[in-house]
């Protein structure tokens, strides 16, 4: 194991993120506050409670997931895409590091940043609404697993992307609709049966549901199924990466 290399890549990535710290911290705080003001007051005044939880508290886990997914996918992808784009990747490719070590460095950094932002949003939310965490251990587990899985997913996109458009398409165009339609801002019980069935095809539903369960013990699907689904998605990402590393896909010609 080349620990120095992992440390260097992780440190390099964290330094890159530190340079954009203001933007990375302030923007989620502002966005979250806006969600609370707009959704919380406009919709919250009509819905008041869902399954005994106030609307503002109900949407907090979904809001955290929305930002966590977007951040992890985009950080995970930019980390590897950028050196590929500028050509500095020659150095990592010619260094005595295995692809798995490169992966740990980049994905570790992306997941760390995602987690930090997730916690900042949680702290921001607690200024607006009551937050109760019924299962703190499970909450952290969901958060960490999701952060790692989606950073891996981002890494795959970063290797695959040939230009900035492809790079942005998933975090910009795929993650938000899936999150919005995955029950972040409502319980899918509120939907007609057909749309409930459709919602079960959305992987984000399982994340949000399980995560929310760790707060309020209310869930659209059984939290065990949620965990299994994250595990499945994690396994898919790892196998895709395994194949990419074996074939040198878009990294080593």
């Amino acid at each position: 194991m080349n620990f120095e290399a992992i440390k260097s890549i992780y440190g390099f990535e964290m330094a890159r993120m530190r340079r954009t710290l203001m933007q990375s911290v302030i923007s989620p705080v502002i966005t979250t506050s806006l969600y609370f003001i707009v959704f919380g007051t406009a919709i919250g005044s009509r819905i008041q409670t869902i399954e005994g939880v106030s609307y503002g508290s109900f949407i907090t886990p979904g809001l955290i997931m929305l930002t966590l997914l977007t951040q992890c996918v985009s950080n995970g992808s930019i980390g590897i895409y950028f050196p590929k784009f500028t050509g500095t990747i020659y150095e990592i490719l010619s260094a005595p590091v295995a692809m798995t070590e490169i992966l740990v460095g980049y994905v570790g950094a992306a997941a760390t940043k995602g987690l930090l932002i997730g916690l900042i949003i949680l702290a921001t939310a607690s200024f607006f609404v009551d937050i109760r965490i019924a299962h703190p251990f499970m909450m952290v587990l969901f958060l960490v697993l999701t952060a790692i899985t989606f950073s891996l997913f981002g890494f795959i996109i970063g290797i695959w992307a040939k230009n900035f458009e492809q790079l942005n398409i998933v975090p910009m165009l795929v993650v938000p609709p899936l999150t919005f339609l995955g029950g972040s801002f409502y319980s899918i019980d509120m939907l007609p049966p057909f749309w409930q069935a459709v919602s079960h095809l959305n992987p984000v539903l399982y994340l949000v549901s399980g995560f929310r369960w760790s707060f309020y013990e209310i869930a659209d699907v059984n939290p065990v199924i949620s965990l299994v689904m994250i595990g499945v998605f994690l396994a898919i990402c790892l196998s895709v990466l395994g194949w990419m590393f074996k074939t040198g896909y878009r990294l080593r010609s």
């Binding site: 120095e4 440390k7 260097s8 390099f12 340079r19 150095e91 990592i92 005595p96």
Partner: peptide, 16 residues
């Protein structure tokens, strides 16, 4: 956006 010092130190690091 890296400094000279950091980028050279980084190289040493990735070489273990």
């Amino acid at each position: 956006f890296e400094t000279v010092w950091n980028t050279v130190s980084f190289s040493r690091g990735v070489y273990g």
